[in-house]
């Protein structure tokens, strides 16, 4: 269920795969990526509404993470185009996309272990003068900017309850704290679109709630969020719109409460024939069992 009572900007948008949104921040068209003979991603069209939380779900091996990597430039598609904020960004490298305001996190957190927490945060800030080689020798040019960045970083750390870890190596944080740090660090980039790859994976339930609150608070700041998630409870709780992938394709779209009832989605998660054997070996085993059962009465009978 949408959390806020205000009418959704997606009211009236039909619940079908690839449907156009009234104010899309990201539009993907004809994106395909094959690994050898396996078509990992074959997305006809997806558009992401600005300012909302969109969940990307699907069973294991549906191509969600590959799709994520294609969107963020970490992998290049065989074909297809990406339009971000009205600009064609197909083939852009990850750092250019990040500079434009599309920032991602990773399923396995990438905290920079041998930098301390505050340095991790400060790294995220855009347009730092001191990142130029020659300017780096002249602190005069960037000391002021550095102070501003540090103040902003400390604000965010306080919001994410990491302020007490400010000067610790990021490598000493717990798994959940690393997720928090990674999210906070992504915000240092001042993004318009945040892509979270399984933000709740490996986080203890107590922390999950606070992570969810953070994600919601991003939406209220006007940041668009796309996230990959397995946990349907989480998806129902925070997402405004759900895109379902299976076997590389988008099979359904719609609000979470509608998606939960969609027969295609249930099939994708549970298998089209719920009692069908999973592998050839299992099938043979089942046949053998049936044969034994059929033979036994025959030998016993006089």
């Amino acid at each position: 269920m949408p959390v806020d009572a205000a009418p959704s900007p997606l009211a009236g948008v039909p619940y079908e795969p690839g449907v156009d949104k009234p104010d899309p921040i990201l539009i993907v068209e004809g994106m395909r990526k094959a690994f050898g003979g396996l078509m990992a991603v074959d997305v006809h069209k997806v558009s992401i509404q600005r300012g909302l939380i969109t969940a990307l779900i699907g069973p294991n091996g549906a191509g969600k993470t590959t799709f994520f990597n294609l969107l963020t430039g970490f992998d290049q598609p065989d074909s297809g185009s990406t339009i971000f904020d009205g600009q064609d960004v197909s083939g852009f490298s990850p750092f250019r996309l990040a500079k434009m305001g599309m920032v991602r996190t990773f399923q396995l957190t990438k905290s920079l272990t041998r930098l301390n927490v505050i340095e991790n945060m400060k790294l995220g800030a855009k347009g730092q003068v001191g990142e130029g080689f020659l300017q780096a020798f002249l602190p005069f040019f960037w000391k002021g900017q550095e102070r501003e960045i540090e103040a902003r970083a400390e604000d965010l750390l306080a919001r994410f309850r990491l302020a007490h870890m400010r000067d610790e190596y990021a490598g000493t944080l717990s798994g959940g704290q690393r997720k928090l740090l990674e999210m906070a660090r992504a915000l240092m980039v001042e993004p318009d679109l945040v892509m979270l790859d399984e933000p709740m994976a490996g986080v203890n339930p107590a922390l999950t709630q606070s992570l969810l609150e953070h994600v919601k608070s991003l939406r209220s700041q006007g940041i668009t969020i796309v996230f990959v998630e397995h946990d349907m409870d989480v998806v129902r709780d925070i997402s405004d719109w759900v895109v379902v992938m299976s076997e590389g394709r988008v099979i359904a779209e719609g609000p979470p409460e509608v998606i939960g009832q969609d027969p295609d989605v249930i099939d994708a998660y549970l298998g089209a024939h719920h009692d069908a054997p999973l592998t050839v070996a299992q099938e043979e085993q089942q046949l053998a069992q049936i044969e034994v059962q059929l033979d036994e009465p025959g030998t016993d009978a006089p």
Partner: peptide
Amino acid sequence: REDEDAARALGKN
């Protein structure tokens, strides 16, 4: 040095 992909994801070339 710590993680190249993390740096790229944060807009560093």
